[in-house]
Design a protein around this nucleic acid. Sequence first.
DNA 1: CGGGAAGTTGATATAACTCAAGGTAGGTGG
DNA 2: CCACCTACCTTGAGTTATATCAACTTCCCG
Lengths: 214, 214
Amino acid sequence: MHAQAAAKIELQSYLPRQSPSPAFDGATLNPVSFFQAGTEIYAQGEKAGALYQVEFGAVRIYRLLADGRRQISAFHLAGETFGFEADATHHFFAEAINATGVRVFRASGTDMSRQLLPLALKGLTRAQEHLLVLGRQNAIERVAAFLLDMSERQGGLRQVDLPMSRNDIGDYLGLTIETVSRVFTRLKEKGVIRLVSLRSIEVLKREALLAMGE
Amino acid sequence: MHAQAAAKIELQSYLPRQSPSPAFDGATLNPVSFFQAGTEIYAQGEKAGALYQVEFGAVRIYRLLADGRRQISAFHLAGETFGFEADATHHFFAEAINATGVRVFRASGTDMSRQLLPLALKGLTRAQEHLLVLGRQNAIERVAAFLLDMSERQGGLRQVDLPMSRNDIGDYLGLTIETVSRVFTRLKEKGVIRLVSLRSIEVLKREALLAMGE
DNA sequence: CGGGAAGTTGATATAACTCAAGGTAGGTGG
DNA sequence: CCACCTACCTTGAGTTATATCAACTTCCCG
């Protein structure tokens, strides 16, 4: 299912060229780890304990049912932090969507709860808001809410990058790939969005999206 | 929609009879606030800052869409803590489901992030797991997962209290009340559960529930 | 015991899924 | 640099799970 082309580029580390932006005080300024498109960052059941900050690229966090059904609980874009766990075990999978750079922080040693709490709470609010989307909104509303969210997280510009596939979007919104595709088509027909390319849209009528998103 | 019988019993406070179990070090041992069935504990948009521990009864946390659609993101039973927010504002409503006693802690002053973080992370994991249920499971699977969750949180006994209405269950699982009712009937017919009363079930075949719940 | 809220059951409607067949685009090798 | 190849995406037709609408029943609470 999540097969990927044989990895030819090996995982590597390097020291940053640009001004480093450590997510936490007291954390060692670790090097950046590279992950190829489709590669695993951590797996459900693995020992947890580190935190991850996306330098570039995008990451999907997901869970699987026994029969292969997948629910993506979150996407993480550049600048965002993920990997928190309630205990010492990962309860989810994390995969690079595209070629992605991730800075890994060991949470051990110094007490970082003061810095982690706001991030955890932000994630909690996000997840709870997503529950409303999955529980009570229809396909158009889900896609509208998703596009608005992606837009906001990219600075609210008209043009929005969608680093993930339609399949990923479907698994995030609790829809099939076909339904996602049909909704995109409908939004195009209505003149609400324009497809710059498959992975990039332009928001033409933000108001209309907002009206749909809730 | 969420109308309630005119409140005759006023909100009151008292000092606990039983051994107090403060949720946090350094927190004043506040009195317990009473809430009648259906009354609001806090509202979306209100100023946040306090934490709430359920002494007895049950609480629902929810959000509304403009047209009245409701998504309950969590139920909180005796002993559980809620009210965390990422900023100074409540993003959700909290209501007492039944007559409920809640101990309120002001989070101000001492730094409680060390104690709060695990609770926030627990909530985050819970919410993310619920996303899988809403996004990818069918009606039977949702109800099975819900009953198992309620059972676990009540010590895993055969008999499980359901303090909430079918309507609440529907709004938690992203289903209509009718669908919830039909699933209960199916589970009864299959001999998986037995209805002791409307608000109390007995789990007869835990294995079958587990097989359905995922 | 009566009344009203809550729950159940039935019939029908519909949004989204499934299955299937093209189409498109982006990357690779010739 | 072009053409092919393969992933990904789109579109269509038919199916299905759940919603909706409606009537009836049961359980409490006063």
